[in-house]
Design a protein around this nucleic acid. Structure first.
Lengths: 248, 248
DNA sequence: GGGGAAGCTTGACGCTTGTCAAAGCGGGGT
DNA sequence: ACCCCGCTTTGACAAGCGTCAAGCTTCCCC
């Protein structure tokens, strides 16, 4: 692992090497020169402790943020303090794209564990992407991917019953962890039952009960936030009838 | 209305003049030369009859489509034939952005009335947007807007009760029609109760019952697909507690 | 190490919405 | 113009999930 000195980009590349899907990360198919240009634009990475905000709804939009390590939730809040979780995000994912349209962040992004992110100033990325066609195309693809992801969640919320939603959620988390080189069938959830419920359009009691039901049937083992999947086929069966069963 | 000959772009501009929000359409802040370039890229517009497909899920993605006139639904289908409506779309809106990520269309787009669309070959638009920075930025904003729209629907599906969903839906349709210069409080719905229900995550009977309830309370008048809004304030009250009550 | 708050599980009950059914109305095509 | 089919409305009933409540565990901070 040579010449690591002072290259924020290198760190990004390292996080990329953790991903089977290179597309999660930025530097794809760039030559040495283009990499250097990109590296110059990426700001010093920033560390966040659990509970800290990466950005808040209503703040001026200036940058996108790439997660190098850690785990985040994005959520929107109403006046009376209730919140709705709109997504959970892992290393390699890009946050803040909803802020482009109105130049204002449309949601809060909160670290669920100690994390590290890279800041990508948007106007500079935009002009850089004019010089590097493959970068431009990559940005369009990332935004399109976010649209596809949101629509698959719309399907989940509009069509599925509680147990189907939980099964889809567990399989999604599992596959995303596997993509990053972690165990697919034995993991720690970083979020609370209430946050899962908020994301899935369910109450926390329903989440808890449904997990217990899966455990009783021998499909999974639940020890608080420690989840083990024993029979993923049964979980897949549950959602096989649903539209576009595979995860985003 | 001079020199209309052979300019597909002109037609787009005409459809734009119907919109209070110029941002819905493509040619914003372009000079004469840039307009000519853009015009050269836009393919001959295409007419569709009610029920025809603009594109289908699974087809190769080649172009985005701008609606000049008419009304569309987008939806996804499962193996067993059930469908989920993911959106309703009016003149000035751009469809197909979910196809960019995988080079395959992710949903069906079907005309709900006789319509006219412009085809925008994506790779050519992409290279053109490198020469015209404002066009590039506009595309990013359009995709971001789609992300925001999808997230507001996620909130609706995850948080709201049946009557709140219907109220939000009616107010949304109303404001989008007003934006295009149509009456805000007296309109014809182009979709069936079943399609509304599919979009809102409800069964058609619930849609029908809830509309009847609104009518009983004197808030609206329902005559099949002909809707009149009498007391929009009451509808707004219903969703005032919800997160981000305003429409997309 | 201990205390307290926050998170999780489980039960009982009720409401919202889905399901099944029947009847009325309207519109499009022959 | 008429007829048939599809859409809509309305009712009765059932089920799934939310609500309220109590007790328990765990984790964090002092």
């Amino acid at each position: 692992m040579p010449e690591q000195n002072n290259s924020h980009l290198h760190a990004l590349k390292v996080s990329c090497s953790n991903c089977t899907l290179r597309e999660l990360c930025l530097p794809v198919g760039l030559n040495r020169d283009e990499l250097a240009q990109l590296d110059a634009v990426i700001r010093q990475s920033r560390r966040l402790k659990r509970g800290e905000y990466m950005f808040r709804s209503g703040e001026a939009f200036k940058s996108l943020f790439a997660i190098r390590t850690g785990f985040f939730k994005t959520c929107m809040s109403s006046q009376d303090g209730r919140e709705q979780v709109t997504g959970f995000h892992m290393s390699g994912e890009l946050l803040g794209m909803d802020g482009i349209s109105a130049n204002v962040h449309g949601c809060d992004a909160i670290a669920l564990e100690d994390s590290e992110v890279c800041e990508l100033p948007f106007t500079r990325m935009q002009s850089l992407s004019r010089d590097i066609p493959s970068l431009q195309h990559h940005f369009y693809r990332l935004m399109s991917r976010e649209i596809v992801r949101d629509q698959s969640i719309m399907l989940l919320l509009g069509n599925m019953k509680a147990d189907e939603r939980l099964a889809a959620f567990l399989l999604n988390v599992s596959s995303r962890l596997a993509t990053r080189g972690f165990a697919a069938n034995d993991f720690i959830l970083r979020m609370s039952r209430e946050e899962i419920g908020s994301f899935l359009g369910l109450k926390l009691e329903t989440v808890s009960r449904t997990l217990s039901k899966f455990q009783q049937q021998g499909w999974i083992k639940v020890d608080h936030k420690h989840i083990q999947l024993y029979q993923t086929d049964e979980l897949k069966n549950l959602i096989s009838g649903c539209i576009h069963a595979q995860s985003h």
